[in-house]
C-alpha cells in the first residue's frame, strides 16, 4: 500500500511541477495547491499506514493496547494543511492585486518582470496609494 501511495505522490509532484513551470501564474497557484497535497500525502505515507486500528486508548488503560495507527503524521498534516491554506489564500489575493495593477499574469511579460525599483523619490509627498481594507 505504501508503494502505491509513494507512486501517487511522485505523480502528483510531477503534475504540480509541470503546472508551476508553465509560466502562467494562475497555473502556478494550481501547481502549488497540488504540491501541498502531495507533500501531505508524503508525510502521511512516511508515517506508515495501518488499517482499521485507530489510535485510541481503551477506558482504564494508560497506553494503547497493541499496534495502532500512527497519530503523529496526522497532527503534522493538519498543521501543514492550515498553513498551506493560508498561504494559498494570500497567494490568490496577491495575484488578484497584481493583475489589477499590471493587467497580466504571464511570467514572461515585461510588465511583470520589470525590476526597476519603485521610483519613490521626493520623500513624504504622500503619493503612495493607500486604500483601506488590505488583505
Amino acid at each position: 500500500m505504501e508503494g502505491v501511495l509513494a507512486l501517487l505522490v511522485g505523480l502528483v509532484f510531477a503534475a504540480s511541477i509541470y503546472l508551476m513551470l508553465s509560466g502562467v501564474l494562475v497555473k502556478f497557484v494550481f501547481g502549488f495547491a497540488l504540491a501541498s497535497n502531495a507533500v501531505n500525502l508524503l508525510i502521511f505515507t512516511a508515517g506508515r499506514l495501518e488499517h482499521d486500528r485507530p489510535p485510541l486508548i481503551p477506558v482504564g488503560a494508560e497506553t494503547p493496547v497493541g499496534p495502532t495507527a500512527n497519530a503523529l503524521p496526522q497532527a503534522l498534516i493538519l498543521t501543514a494543511i492550515v498553513i498551506g491554506f493560508a498561504m494559498l489564500t494570500f497567494l490568490m489575493v496577491l495575484l488578484y492585486r497584481t493583475y489589477a495593477e499590471t493587467d497580466t499574469l504571464d511570467a514572461d511579460d515585461p510588465r511583470l518582470m520589470d525590476e526597476t525599483p519603485a521610483d519613490d523619490d521626493d520623500h513624504g509627498d504622500g503619493s503612495v496609494p493607500q486604500e483601506g481594507g488590505r488583505s
Binding site: 508551476m20 501564474l25 502556478f28 502549488f32 504540491a35 501541498s36 502531495a38 507533500v39 508524503l42 508525510i43 505515507t45 512516511a46 503524521p73 503534522l76 501543514a80 498561504m87 494570500f90 497567494l91 496577491l94 495575484l95 492585486r97 497584481t98 495593477e101 499590471t102 510588465r111 511583470l112 518582470m113 520589470d114 525590476e115 526597476t116 525599483p117 519603485a118 519613490d120 503612495v128 496609494p129 493607500q130 486604500e131 488590505r134
Partner: peptide, 30 residues
Amino acid sequence: GRRRAQLTGGIKYVTLNLVSTLLFLAVIGL
C-alpha cells in the same frame, strides 16, 4: 505599500519561498 514594483517583486519572493517551504516540508516527511 501596494505599489506596482512591490507587487511584482513580491510575487517572485512569495512564489520561490512557497516552493522552498514545500520542499522543506517534503524533507520533514522523508
